[in-house]
Nucleic acid binder design. Structure first.
Lengths: 127, 127
DNA sequence: CTAACATATGAACAGATGTTCATATGTTAA
DNA sequence: TTAACATATGAACATCTGTTCATATGTTAG
């Protein structure tokens, strides 16, 4: 069982330096990529996706959303906070009630493209 | 400390039945919404976002990506599998080497819109 | 003021997720 | 066949994440 030494990454023979050198400078800052991943994380939860879909149709108060999705007010409120921090929804207060709505149209585009991707890949085999 | 009873969700007074009845039938199947969230989960990780960005520029082998991102071959390989299962990347083998590339253009659109959203929200205050 | 109610939030717990490590698989060359 | 190497993968571990529960905050009505 004398553990043989394996190269952790490939030998220099494998890497293609020309490609590496060409691609490397095109990469955005780490910070931007991090923020981007954080944004998509927000889309990556069924509850939040359902909330966004609900808000496609109409602005709505927290308890309406909770009723529609059959979830507790607390769970919805927590998720609305996440959506708001990501600037995907806004809120406005009217008396005791807080109404939430979509913040901008990127949300629709992103979700729309996601849906297209899914339907294309599921419906047919490799369009 | 006699725990008072709080309504778990809002009273009927609060919910707006007209809105609920209008929105409810517009919601997609649960299965679609689940798949959509699963798709965005794939975008919601820095490593995978970086991989996708790398592949924007050029098809590339596993060890090139690992070298570029300064990560182990194993970590990259695991993530490529996730990306492939989501049909975001394809692979083709050439001898010992496996080259990965973007599967379709939804990836670019989704990521592009995500970037726009971030830059709009960070750069200015509410365009 | 207090009661009622819509919403927000902190803490805790359970389940999901990404990386590492070791090793297996697949391919080429000798 | 064996050696070398590029890639894939299972298991384990630590971290992250979503829900629940209890309770706090904010608003209106009396």
């Amino acid at each position: 069982m004398a553990s043989r030494r394996y190269a952790e990454v490939c030998e220099e023979v494998c890497t293609h330096p020309d490609i590496l050198n060409r691609v490397k400078p095109e990469m955005p800052d780490e910070e931007r990529l991090y923020d981007l991943a954080e944004l998509f994380k927000v889309f990556g939860d069924t509850t939040r996706i359902r909330i966004l879909y609900v808000l496609f149709e109409s602005e709505m108060c927290v308890c309406d959303i909770a009723a529609l999705l059959n979830m507790t007010q607390s769970a919805i409120s927590h998720q609305l906070r996440v959506l708001k921090q990501a600037r995907l929804v806004r809120s406005r207060r009217e008396g005791k009630t807080v109404f939430y709505s979509l913040d901008d149209d990127h949300v629709r585009t992103v979700i729309g493209q996601g849906m297209e991707h899914i339907e294309e890949k599921h419906g047919r085999k490799q369009a």
